[in-house]
Design a protein around this nucleic acid. Structure first.
Length: 653
DNA sequence: TTTCGACGTCTTTTT
DNA sequence: GACGTCGAAA
């Protein structure tokens, strides 16, 4: 294969350099995915063992994409190790957690973690009755942030949560209690996966050396969105051989809210001596008129980027248009119509995407698309694994796996009629000292036999016992499902719509050998597809329009992109407005969205907002109102002050 | 002690 | 427009 025909000089340099640290600064659309694809391939063609290559990416989707493309040229590429930091951490911890004192562990998803934090706060006597005390949700965020940024609580509060600065001591207390609680119950939350992997590597030189030896070549994608812990893990794994490549773009850092720090990019050359820095600047994705918008977005940022995107394409294309609508229904109708027109122009649905800042913005549009029978897939937003019924059924499986899982016990006990918080707490306390399911079940049987929910408890115990005895994940799931179904139908009025999720789940359970892996995978690498709004029967996999949050659209591209809801308060989102840093993150988000488009880009907003049930007048996003940006857009269709001539717009009313 | 209904609060992005 | 909280009734 002649790589020189496929790649430009700097891309080639990356692809041909195997040894030593490299930092690749890859601007939007500069062929980053391609470079990773061919670098993996090139390594393998040069006799590097696939299993010695580790590719850490931001989502499983990304690693799968790059590896399967590479495997298209040479199937051995399928044996490259790839995945997210979290999934990689899980894999290692599953094997080696003993070394840091854990025989086993179960994983807390964000919701469970929130419950646990709430429990700790309650037990410590910090109730939310005092209005100013942070709610469990906020508290979880604060604690998590302090872990990910390796920052002390007071310092963090000072910076990001000034209004809670007075509660530093209390929050610190909750943080410690929560940590102890997790140790007792053998819970690992998302952050712990990284914390413990780091610990594992730091405390066990032998293991660290072994892993360094195993993974001779490490690549980390989206490095601008890694946090401090992830950077340290990268360092611990790669220090010995130094064959580490980080790829990123500081202008696209959009995960600050999760503790990511684009400073990691700047630090990379400091941590790895003799690091080569290679910039990929040509943009192969979009034509210049789209890039003009992107460049203009970056111009007035305080945190400067030296980058100016230059298109390497020769087609000129149209100036991106900015559309104004009266309300979301009009926007939806216009977009839906435009999608159809564009398809008639030969751009099929797969090549079009509608992007938005927050999922709820897309609901009117989803309804309009359904009405017109336009098939679509939604990425981002509420996942089906976050819905009540899915969490209910998983709770049964979780206690079978970990009888100490108090959070799940509480959930499933309260599904029984007549059992509320108090009773469930009492039952749990009676059961808390036991470590095996058998003991717990025996205790459950004794518990409250004479009361009205006694028989229910017995039935529950019976089901759990039977399920625990099953030898396959699938059968265990079925036991739980049989037990849960009547409760489910009673609990949810709209159960027929939810039933499909349970069926899908049952299906998935068949793919796993152990409950443990099923549950872990579900938490760490959950299926990303929402099922809402799509009729699975008519959905043609190959021909679906994409609806996605901007966050979930990272790294992807489409021929035609519609960026909707460009009102101030939506993008930038209203609660980002109190800090300069978060406004800039919103601005980068806008930049990411714009640079997803290859040939056509439409921006739109509507004026009638509905916050808090009251209507309000939305101003255009401050990002498009700036002169620099406005000049790069086509705004003739309708502009501030001027009346919109709706007859000119092809709306099918 | 549970459950239900009214009322007030805050509304995001994801592993 | 959902979710949590609080008070009242069962």
């Amino acid at each position: 294969m002649d790589l020189t025909k496929l790649l430009n000089a700097s891309q080639l340099e990356v692809v041909n350099t195997f040894d030593g640290p490299i930092l690749v600064i890859a601007g939007a659309g500069s062929g980053k995915t391609r470079v990773i694809e061919y670098r993996v391939l090139n390594m393998i063609l040069n006799k590097i063992v696939p299993q010695s290559i580790l590719l850490l990416t931001f989502t499983r989707r990304a690693s799968r994409e790059m590896l399967s493309r590479a495997a298209g040229h040479d199937v051995r590429c399928n044996h490259v190790e790839g995945g997210t930091f979290h999934s990689f951490a899980y894999k290692l911890l599953k094997k080696h957690s003993r070394l840091i004192g854990f025989e086993s562990f179960s994983i807390l998803d964000e919701d469970d973690s929130q419950e646990a934090v709430g429990l700790c706060a309650k037990n410590a006597g910090f109730t939310t009755k005092d209005k100013r005390f942070p709610k469990k949700d906020t508290m979880r965020k604060i604690i998590s942030m302090s872990v990910n940024k390796n920052m002390e609580i007071p310092e963090l509060l000072e910076r990001d949560y000034e209004n809670f600065a007075d509660f530093a001591r209390e929050i610190e207390r909750v943080k410690n209690d929560y940590a102890r609680f997790k140790l007792e119950k053998l819970y690992f939350d998302y952050d712990d996966m990284l914390v413990y992997l780091r610990l594992l590597l730091a405390k066990n030189p032998a293991l660290r050396a072994e892993l360094s030896e195993k993974y001779r070549y490490i690549m980390v994608d989206e490095y601008q969105d890694t946090n401090k812990l992830q950077a340290e893990i990268t360092f611990l794994l790669g220090e010995k051989h130094g064959n580490v490549m980080a790829v990123g773009d500081d202008a696209q850092s959009i995960y600050g809210f999760r503790g990511a720090s684009h400073a990691n990019i700047l630090d990379f050359p400091k941590r790895f001596a003799n690091c080569r820095v290679i910039k990929l600047e040509n943009n192969y994705r979009s034509h210049q008129k789209i890039l003009d918008v992107a460049n203009a977005v970056l111009v007035n940022m305080k945190h400067k980027f030296s980058k100016t995107l230059i298109s390497a394409r020769d087609d000129e294309g149209d100036k991106p248009a900015l559309m104004f609508f009266r309300n979301s229904d009009e926007e939806s109708r216009w977009v839906a119509q435009k999608v159809m027109d564009t398809r008639d122009d030969g751009v099929d649905l797969r090549k079009q995407a509608i992007l938005f800042r927050s999922s709820f913005i897309s609901i009117p549009l989803q309804m309009e698309l359904s009405r017109r029978n336009i098939p679509f897939q939604v990425y981002g937003g509420m996942k089906f694994y976050e819905t009540g019924h899915v969490k209910d059924i998983l709770a049964y499986l979780k206690v079978i796996f970990n009888p100490r899982d108090e959070i799940s016990w509480a959930r499933l006990l309260q599904l029984i009629e007549g059992i509320g918080p108090k009773t469930s707490e009492r039952v749990i306390r009676a059961v808390a000292s036991f470590h095996t399911l058998d003991d717990v079940l025996a205790e459950l049987g004794k518990e409250e036999k004479e009361r009205k929910y006694g028989p229910h408890l017995e039935r529950l115990a019976h089901m759990l016992e039977k399920a625990a005895g099953q030898d396959s994940c699938r059968k265990q799931f079925e036991e739980a499902l049989t037990y849960y179904t009547p409760i489910f139908k009673q609990k949810f009025d709209d159960w027929p719509q939810r039933e499909a999720d349970l069926a899908a789940l049952k299906q998935m359970s068949g793919n796993y050998n152990s409950l443990r892996d099923f549950l872990a995978d579900f938490t760490i690498e959950p299926p990303e597809r929402g099922t809402a709004g799509v009729d699975p029967a008519t959905a043609d996999e190959e021909q679906q329009l994409t609806l996605s949050t901007i966050h979930s659209a990272k790294g992807l591209e489409w021929d035609t992109v519609y960026l909707i809801g460009l009102a101030d308060g939506v993008l930038p989102v209203s609660f980002a407005l109190n800090s300069e840093d978060s406004i800039e993150e919103e601005q980068r988000l806008f930049y990411v969205a714009v640079t997803r488009a290859k040939r056509r880009l439409f921006l739109s907003l509507y004026h009638e907002g509905n916050g808090f049930g009251l209507s309000q007048f939305n101003r255009p996003s401050r990002f498009v109102e700036s002169r620099d940006v406005l000049n790069t857009l086509e705004t003739d269709v309708c502009m501030d002050g001027r009346r919109i001539d709706y007859d000119d717009i092809d709306i099918d009313l």
